[in-house]
Amino acid sequence: MSTIEMIIEERAASIGNFLVGRLLPFREKRMVGPFIFIDHMGPIKMSERENFDVLPHPHIGLSTLTFLFEGSIMHRDSLGNEVEIMPGAVNWMTAGKGIVHSERTPEYLRHSEKHMHGLQIWVALPKELEQMEPEFFHIDSTQIPSWTEGDIDFKLIAGEAFGRRSAVPVFSKLYMLEIKSSKRQTITIGHELYGEAGLYILEGSIESDGNTYQPKQLLVAKDSSICEFVMEANTVIYIFGGEVFPEERFIDWNFVSSSKETLAEAREKWIAQKFPKIKGEENEFVPYPSRIKK
């Protein structure tokens, strides 16, 4: 990554009873490829009296990607899915025209000490698929392509790169890669990527053009074809990006669309509680926040 267009620092944001580090959207960079929202959750240790509880809330026009490093989350949605997300697995939920889901600490962990650490990501849908029927897929960690080249470990969490394809059923040309290095070495992968590229440092540090970059920084490249940098020993990074959509995307709370009218319709539909319900959680929901500008 010899030419960096922008450095985005994590900013604290609240998701109910939990603080996260927000990376996207950023006021000067709303998206990287089709990636429109990225939260870094944790790392945090919770006591036996604390739990991760995000009540039922809606989405439209996007796919969510949940990837944990530590901990466990119980996912429930209005399609009837109930799946525990474990480290290394991928939850891929496509909202399309509308879905509701909740995310909570599993029952068997609610009265014990626990840890939480991971990434919550939104990927915008192509315009022609924004109103598709909602879908849900859970991809086990054993289905994620992983390989080693020398002292570098790679994992293709989603999309296509390096002549490989992840089992995550994406809808546009994109990639999300995990790269781990056990020793200091130069990484050159630009020719394998395409579109826009962002690099997030989870652990360790990298060097580029004589500058050193640390954890909790998202580096946005000017050109994905020039991704060359030095990884220090025991460094873990995530590279994501892909082809840019021709149309602008707008965000209103948990809704994403190329149409502001569609966002307004979704907002009023949620306020009127006309979205589908999650079985067993029919009377719980996150209210539309009044601070959001209509």
Rank of each mutant, 00 (worst) to 15 (best):
V168P: 07
Y200L: 15
W253G: 04
M132L: 09
G98F: 10
P43Y: 09
V256K: 10
F250N: 06
K222Y: 13
Y175Q: 08
S181E: 02
S78R: 04
E9L: 12
A233K: 14
E243Q: 12
M41Q: 09
I73V: 15
I36E: 00
K293P: 02
D153K: 12
F35P: 04
E247N: 11
I38A: 10
G242N: 09
F26H: 15
N234G: 05
R11H: 13
M41A: 14
N283E: 15
K183G: 03
S14P: 02
P215W: 08
E149C: 05
Q185M: 11
A95R: 10
E5L: 12
F240C: 01
R165F: 09
G96P: 01
S258M: 01
V286Y: 10
E70A: 06
T3C: 09
D39N: 02
Q217K: 03
F255E: 05
T64E: 06
S63F: 03
E261L: 08
L156W: 06
F52M: 03
I152L: 15
I60Q: 05
T105S: 14
H101P: 04
T235C: 04
S208L: 00
Q273A: 10
N254D: 08
I38W: 12
L55D: 11
E248I: 06
F18D: 11
V236S: 14
L174M: 15
H111V: 07
E130H: 06
A272T: 00
F255L: 07
G71F: 01
